[in-house]
């Protein structure tokens, strides 16, 4: 048992590291894009349909590249940013970039759900666009945003297992190296259970908070 723990614990921490930082960076990259998509829409506050469709296309292209290929394509970038292509730090780069367009779409759809009348009321009261974004759009869409971010984290947990296989470390890597290649079924089972628990806890926590702050 302690042997399994010795193997699993560091891998688990690596996975947590990848998930936490990738989520953070993907939100930092993706959320502004999502907000811009909403504002630049032809019915949005800034109305820049051309730029909107260009950015929309870039997001679609990025999302249609299979993740495993995206990681390989982004190896050079990992080397530039983190100095290496191996390890959990290096995996955060492709993970964040792969998840960012997903975050952008999730944020976009949550913000588009905000009642148009409420936005109009804010405009009629003399609110500026940044004030509307932060005091109206994000606040009103918060339950949807939380659910969207939860979905993103669950996705990143899955992606991190893949990233692990090509040198990122973490639970996925452990599952392949020990569980699969060394026929350690016990380790395979433990890693799968850990991933299931991780996803389950994330989803339940997200649902709980989304429901708690929803006053509609």
């Amino acid at each position: 048992m302690s042997e399994i723990l010795k193997l699993v614990l560091p891998s688990f921490l690596d996975t947590l590291y990848m998930v936490v930082f990738s989520t953070l960076f993907s939100i930092l990259l993706g959320a502004p894009l999502g907000i811009f998509l909403v504002l630049s829409d032809k019915e949005g506050l800034l109305k820049m349909p051309k730029l909107n469709s260009i950015i929309g296309s870039i997001i679609n292209i990025t999302r249609s590249i299979p993740f495993i290929i995206l990681i390989i394509l982004l190896f050079p970038l990992s080397r530039v940013i983190v100095g290496t292509t191996i390890g959990k730090e290096a995996a955060v780069v492709p993970l964040s970039i792969a998840a960012a367009p997903f975050v952008a779409r999730v944020v976009e759809s949550a913000l588009k759900d905000v009642n148009k009348g409420v936005i109009e009321a804010a405009v009629s009261l003399g609110a500026s666009t940044p004030q509307i974004v932060f005091k109206v759009l994000i606040k009103e869409a918060l339950p949807g945003l939380i659910l969207g971010i939860t979905l993103t984290i669950v996705n990143i947990i899955g992606y991190s297992a893949m990233a692990g296989v090509i040198g990122g470390g973490g639970i996925g890597d452990l599952a392949v190296r020990y569980g699969y290649q060394r026929f350690r079924t016990d380790i395979l089972i433990v890693t799968v259970i850990i991933l299931i628990l991780l996803v389950e806890i994330t989803q339940r926590t997200g649902n709980y908070f989304a429901k708690k702050i929803d006053r509609r």
Partner: peptide
């Protein structure tokens, strides 16, 4: 100012916050 048929209040803000909104943005 304008008022609307469907009120258009901030649904995730309480009454106080709704009324404070135009004062905050000013």
């Amino acid at each position: 100012s304008m008022i609307f048929q469907h009120f258009n209040l901030l649904s995730n803000s309480n009454v106080y916050k709704n009324v404070a909104f135009p004062l905050e943005i000013a």
